[in-house]
Every structure is written in C-alpha cells, then in structure tokens.
Design a protein around this nucleic acid. Sequence first.
DNA 1: CTCCTGCTGG
DNA 2: CCAGCGGGAG
Length: 336
Amino acid sequence: MENAETAFAKTEPIRLRLFDWWSRYARDLPWRFGRTTPWGVLVSEVMSQQTQMSRVVPYWTAWMKIWPDAASLAAAPKAEVITAWGRLGYPRRALRLQECAQQVAGQYADRLPRDYDQLVALPGIGDYTASAVMSFAYGERIAVIDTNIRRVLSRVFLGHESTGGAASREERQLAWQVLPEDGGPEDIGAEDSGVQEDGGSGRLGLADPKVRLAAWREPPSARWNQAVMELGATVCIARKPACDICPLAGHCRFLKDGLPGLGAGRTRPRQRFAGTDRQVRGAILQALRQASGAPVPRKDLKPLCKDEIRLDRCIASLDEDGLLEIGQDGSLSLPR
DNA sequence: CTCCTGCTGG
DNA sequence: CCAGCGGGAG
C-alpha cells in the first residue's frame, strides 16, 4: 500500500510529540510503569476487554490482592471468582481467566509464557490481549491492534476512519510499518530495564505510589503502543475527537483533510441492552452474589424478569456457561 | 442515545 | 463472517 510506504518517514516527529504527551498525560494506572508482574498485566488486559479502564482499577486492585498470581487464582472456588468479578460485566471472562490461570499454573509452572503463540492459545486470550502482554509486560516489539489504535493510525496516517469489523490486512501492515524500532543505545532493553520478570515478591500488583513514570523506561515500541492507545482512549475518540488539544494535530492527515466522514465506518452497531437476555443474566448473577453462595429458590428470581420464558432461557444459558448451578430442587447458586 | 483496550462459538 | 455477551458513564 502506497500510504504505508511513506508512513514510516513521518513517524519520527509524531513519535517525539506523542512520547512527550505520554510522559505528561498518561493515566497513572496501577498496572503500568513496571509496578506489576506479567500476570498482573494480563489480568488488567482481560478486565479491560470492552470495559473502561477507570472502572477496572478498583476491581484489579482487589483481585490482585486476593490472587496475586496464576496459581492462587487457579485454586480458588468459582463462586469467589465470580463474586470478585463483581459488576465488571461479561462474567464469562472471569471463568476464562481462571481457566487460563489453571493452564499457566499447570503447564507453565506458574510463569506466564513470553511467546505470542502460547499466549493466544490460552482461554480468553485473543490477538489483542496476547500482543498487549508481549508488548506491555515483556517489552517485545509487536504491533498491538485494538479499536483505539486502528482508529488513531488510520486517521493520522491514512486520513480516513478505520473500517468496521475485524482489522484488515492493511491496518495490520500499517501498525507494523509505523511501529518504532527498539534496541538503540539509549533504549533500555527489557532485560535490564524495569520490564518485569515473573516471581518478584515485591510487585504483586499493589501500586507503589512512590514509583513514578520517571523511574520507568520501556522500549520505544511498547511506549508507542501504549501511547497510541491512550491517545485513542482520551483524545482521538470516535465521535468527537479533541483535535484542539491533540499533540498530533499538526501531523494528522485526517484533520488536515477536514475530518472526512467523521464517525463513519465505525464498528458494528451496539446491541441494545435494556430488556435483553444480557440484562436478565446480569440481574440473576447479581442476586446469586448477594446470596453469598447460598442456594436461591427460582421463584425468588421472578421479580427480575416478567417474561418467564426469558428467565428460564437465561438461567439455562448461565448454566451452560458454568456461571451457576441448578440444585435438585431447582434452586440456583454460584458454582463451586 | 453513545462509547468503551475483545473473545468465542456457530 | 456474525451474533452474543454487562454495565456504567457521558
């Protein structure tokens, strides 16, 4: 693609501006800047799938205090895992994360693999999460592709909105094309920098407020990935990008061209939520959490959903997902 | 109404 | 490739 050809030449001034912006405005999230283990990074990524990071922070902090590593999570009762997931949403993620923990504990001696293919083979870990762990936790040079990065790169370098659906081959090519090279003499590598190794007893996920950005140095590719994503999350947002405060405003082809088709080509339309099975499923699960693991008679759930057919369908789907158990008497409870 | 660091099974 | 999956905040 001819655009990617010229894209890399434009990256240096963009990188300088973006890194400066990152050093000033990066959110001080507790799993950033070398304050947690690769496992802690993975937990943060899974929790952040389709969920705002600001909502994730308290859940992540509590979770990592209870289960600081894969082995401890692997041994936990499911009911406790589902309860600790709280109202983060998509609770199947919690069970997959525990399955993931069991595989990491059992197959990899409680050390998260530093290998994309091994990561992406784990439950609940797709291309994005595997790439994010490789980049953010291990400092490996790999293009991270999520909706934010796709939107930002497409706007800045191609001048148009990213397409809906899965990432195209061109989008992946662009992400690799503009990804900074690592390994320069001033680039502190993963080995001797703070890019963390597993097993440190002092970094079990509780953020040390004294550890600041200034003491942390990651490879340029990892910083690039995080900074592009951060820009997409806080400035270069989908509908109303804040171009007036954007550090890349002077280098953005999309802005120069007058924001053509702003908001078009977006991802697939969101599903409605009110009155859907998802809402009912959430209400059922919340009721079971509040029962503290004790069985709940089915009739007690009737107020949650007037439609009995829907209620039964949701109970059945939660059962299939392994998110609840149905007793002999038909009562419901969180699984063991 | 919109959006949000996706992943999985059909 | 598509539908389904939570919930909160703007």
